[in-house]
Nucleic acid binder design. Structure first.
Length: 465
DNA sequence: AAAAAAC
């Protein structure tokens, strides 16, 4: 069996790895590390919890150590791009951990934080930069960062980074980096269009996949309940109040939905914190910290928390609303059953979400919907009242109340593959060692900035005839 | 079609 010591890594790196208690690489690490040291571009597909982060952090450190022997200079050797600030912080922690004995400097460049310290760090010189796209472009534009000597680039959660809204800034950043760079795309899911785009960015990539694509981890007990829209709240309380629920993440489809559910849970006496992109960075950090330290039992989140975020012992994931992008489901439920533990994922599905559920079934190859459920299309975008240009048809109401009376309680998914050892074997080395983040920051007074949306109840007026 | 990401 391959050991870390067989991979040709420097002493300083091996020391850090062994200090974390690892001696055997996970499957993805065993494949990615040699390919990267070989200089190959990589298209990597691996679920979270498989040791993805270390698989690129270690060879990056190795390359930097080698490069430093030749050239000295304040140059950014490697750039790691992530889709959320929280994920960037987590990756930076991992770089610090494994680079501890190699005199590697790391900077995190993300929005929502004061730019000053970031600028200072970069003026001192940075070996590894971990960034979200927006702020990085800022710094590039002001000339604080130059990427013309950067030789290694990683796009983590690549499918999200290459989503339509994200792609332009990502491309802009890539255009500043020399063409002979080594590039890695890593993701837990890899939809087709994304793969096409990937071939645009990579040259002759090694394709590395360690588990069946888009297949939710077998250790997760997936359930789906058909429920009327109006009964979702009661159902949620019922689920969260159960004895076996230790710590849960509840996902909503919208930011406002996350706030509403959080408020509702609070009133029902279930401690909860909400995290989404409209909250200040301070609020986001505090919500995450409160959840990690079990000061609250429930984290209510948008898909900001669907990917990569590493929190141990999440016993339950509840999809209060199903995601319209089926891949998001895979990411969401991957927040539980981490590091070889088991977990439960419960989805509340109303009639308008049945087609989303069907898409998810197709993607994952798992049976979720109970027998005999009628699949109806989701409300069409044009029918939405927000546009205000639709004559309202009596039948086209948004909450068509289908299941009158009792909600149908779904059963645990049929045809679930027998669990086998595969995923669980990864626990040791797969678990990124996240150093504790400093929580001594002064509390910002950002409760005051809570947004109000006075327009919520306004009736559509324009062009209604 | 939602959310994320810059001030």
């Amino acid at each position: 069996m391959t050991k870390f010591t067989d991979l040709g890594l420097s002493e300083a790196i091996l020391r850090a790895v062994s200090k974390q208690g690892y001696d055997t690489p996970t499957p993805i690490q065993a494949k990615v590390i040699p390919a990267m040291l070989d200089g190959r571009d990589i298209l990597g597909i691996a679920q979270t919890g498989t040791g993805k982060t270390a698989s690129f952090v270690l060879p990056i450190l190795e390359k930097i150590i080698a490069a430093k022997k030749q050239a000295v200079g304040k140059t950014c050797h490697a750039l790691i791009l992530a889709p959320t600030r929280e994920l960037a912080a987590q990756i930076a922690d991992s770089v610090r951990t494994y680079g501890a004995f190699a005199k590697i400097s790391v900077a995190t460049v993300v929005g929502g934080a004061r730019p000053g310290p970031q600028v200072m760090a970069m003026k001192r010189g940075v070996d590894v930069l971990v960034a979200t796209p927006g702020r990085l472009i800022d710094h590039c534009d002001t000339g604080v960062i130059r990427l013309d000597r950067t030789h290694t680039v990683v796009l983590d959660e690549a499918d999200q980074m290459m989503d339509l809204g994200f792609l332009p800034p990502v491309r802009k950043i890539l255009s500043k980096i020399p063409g002979d760079r080594q590039t890695l795309l890593l993701s837990a899911t890899m939809p087709k269009q994304i793969k096409a785009l990937a071939s645009d960015i990579l040259s002759d990539p090694a394709e590395i996949s360690v588990s069946p694509v888009s297949r939710p981890i077998d250790q997760i007990d997936q359930r789906l309940h058909m429920v009327g829209q109006l009964e979702k709240r009661d159902m949620l309380i019922e689920i969260l109040a159960a004895d076996d629920v230790d710590r849960a993440i509840v996902f909503t489809r919208t930011k406002r939905g996350a706030d509403r559910v959080c408020q509702y849970l609070d009133r029902a006496g279930i401690s909860a914190a909400a995290i989404h992109g409209d909250k200040s960075q301070g609020q986001r950090e505090r919500a995450l910290a409160a959840f990690k330290k079990s000061r609250v039992k429930v984290l209510v989140a948008t898909d900001i928390a669907a990917r990569g975020i590493d929190i141990d012992d999440v016993s339950h994931v509840v999809n209060y609303e199903l995601p319209n992008v089926p891949e998001a489901y895979v990411h969401r439920i991957g927040r539980t059953a981490r590091a070889g533990r088991s977990g439960v994922a419960i989805s509340l599905c109303d009639q308008g979400e049945t087609s989303y559920a069907r898409d998810i079934e197709r993607l994952t190859g798992t049976r979720l919907l109970p027998d005999g459920v009628k699949i109806t299309p989701p409300p069409k975008p044009g029918q939405r009242a927000t546009r205000g240009n639709q004559p309202q048809q009596p039948g086209s109401r948004r909450h068509r109340d289908t299941a009158p009376g009792k909600p149908v309680h779904g059963k645990p998914a049929h045809g679930k593959p027998a669990r086998d050892n595969q995923g669980a074997a990864n626990q040791g080395a797969g678990k990124p060692a996240h150093a504790k983040r400093a929580d001594t920051k002064p509390a910002l007074n950002d409760n005051a900035q809570r947004k109000r949306r006075p327009n919520r109840n306004r009736r559509p007026q324009q062009a209604a005839g």
